[in-house]
């Protein structure tokens, strides 16, 4: 299956570098310790430009979800579930939910991260029901 490759920038290359090696990485302010996502160069709480990268536990819940039925990737085969995942660390990110039938997805269901390589070497973080 084909996916559009993510566009990394100077401010978030660490995230995609992590995906490439199978790690879900989050940005954390080196001064006040708060996490933020999507990543950015400056801490919005303390304005520090210093930050570090930490590996997320990779666990979270489905905050919201949709099943697109119109053109693009979903026409390539089985339905794709897109989910807004709320991570244990308190940030949200958009990803896909796999290993569950579209009709069985529920808001709040526990999920865990894994990584998939699509066509042309595009690697993305994906989620599946936790503990299977």
């Amino acid at each position: 299956m084909k996916r559009t490759a993510p566009l990394a920038t100077r401010d978030d290359r660490f995230f995609w570098d992590g995906v490439a090696v199978g790690e879900l990485r989050l940005q954390r302010c080196a001064n006040c310790g708060k996490r933020r996502h999507p990543p950015g160069p400056m801490c919005p709480w303390c304005h520090s430009l210093q930050w570090r990268v930490e590996r997320a536990a990779g666990r979270g819940v489905v905050y919201s979800y949709v099943i697109p039925r119109h053109t693009a990737i979903e026409s390539q085969g089985e339905p794709v579930i897109v989910a807004l995942i709320e991570l244990e660390e308190g940030v949200r990110l958009v990803s896909n939910l796999c290993g569950v039938a579209p009709g069985a997805v529920r808001n709040g269901m526990a999920v865990e991260v894994f990584f998939t390589e699509f066509e042309d070497g595009v690697r993305l973080h994906q989620f599946r029901p936790a503990g299977r």
């Binding site: 559009t4 490759a5 993510p6 949709v66 697109p68 979903e74 897109v82 958009v94 808001n107």
Partner: peptide, 19 residues
């Protein structure tokens, strides 16, 4: 951050919020 996961139209961006 959304397009690689299949959210590539306004309908899809918006729907994930509305759900």
């Amino acid at each position: 951050w959304y397009i690689p996961f299949g959210l590539d139209t306004p309908a899809k961006w918006a729907a994930l919020h509305f759900q």
